[in-house]
Simulated scan of single mutants.
Amino acid sequence: MTTPTAPTTPTAPTTGSLRVPGATLHYQVRGDGPLLLLIPGGTGGAAAFDNVIDALAAEYTVAAYDPRGISRSTLDDPEADQQVAEHADDAFRLLQLLSPGEPARVFGTSSGAITALHLLTAHPESVERLVAHEPPVVEVLPDAAEHRAFLATVQETFHAQGLMPAMAVFAAGLQKAGATANGDATPPRAAAEIELPPQAAARAEQTMAGLPYFLGRIVPSFMGYAPDIRLLEELADRLVLAGGQDSHGELPYRPAAYLARQLGVELSHFPGGHTGLTTHPEQFAEHLRKALST
């Protein structure tokens, strides 16, 4: 039985950079113990984990990084297309650097969870346990064709009208998908109803700066990605699929629930919705700690 660790004063992380093909990755490391690699989604980068990293660092050596093209991780070619396999290779190279020869625990959320799923199937020897929180791999769903058409509309709007109209179409489509799946019984909570912690609110400027790259090059390739279900079945004993307690039926939740049924594993429910990491950091960290050690 693990003895609870007394709270400690947070220490400054060790930061570094890693050259990978086509990019330079910025990463930070904190804590002591077995390696836990955190892969963020969206445009938040490593800062998305600011409110949970200290709780996890009491038990793990926690590494978080900015995915290529996000925040401090720069691309050699700013216009380069982005592929899930390439992002997963970045994660693998970080594992080789920080935990050479030893498998690590990995957590990914949203698009970061898609990266993590590919990492698991491409390099299973490097992953001891993976928690994938709401990976929006809509290609696994029976109604994938509808989502393909929706994503095409988002891209058409982006190129014809610009970022904010496209984001409006994107957000409305995610809500519509959730309402349809729920029979309009439990519509998603509006963003205005959620009070964000001060650190999260302060990251809004970075989030906005990264949106053109995210919407234009991450969303199409990542949400068009189809994981290898056969390989995931073989590796299901080290995979935890997670969904938000408040996001039942919403589009990012549905692939996680569907994959869990396909693989014959239980779907783990984490606090909050798709952004529970931000809105419920303390409870989220505790659920993640348990999921990693089960």
Rank of each mutant, 00 (worst) to 15 (best):
L251D: 05
A63E: 05
Q199D: 13
A171T: 10
E128K: 13
L38I: 04
D246S: 13
I70C: 01
R129G: 02
G69Y: 07
L239Y: 06
R203D: 10
H123N: 03
V140H: 09
F150V: 05
I229H: 05
L231G: 13
F107E: 01
A80R: 14
A122V: 03
P136G: 08
Q155F: 08
D184R: 08
V84P: 09
L259V: 06
S221F: 04
Q175Y: 03
A201C: 00
Q283K: 13
T207H: 11
G216T: 05
A12Q: 14
R129F: 09
A202T: 03
V106W: 06
H280E: 15
Y258I: 00
F214I: 06
P13H: 09
D184N: 14
G41D: 07
Q28P: 01
A85Y: 03
S221R: 14
Q175E: 11
G162P: 02
R68V: 06
Q262R: 15
A257K: 03
G210R: 09
L141G: 09
T109L: 10
H159P: 00
I218D: 00
T14L: 12
P34V: 03
G272R: 07
P197Y: 13
L196W: 14
F222C: 05
V240W: 06
T157P: 07
G112M: 06
A209L: 13
E286T: 15
S111C: 09
G276E: 10
I229F: 01
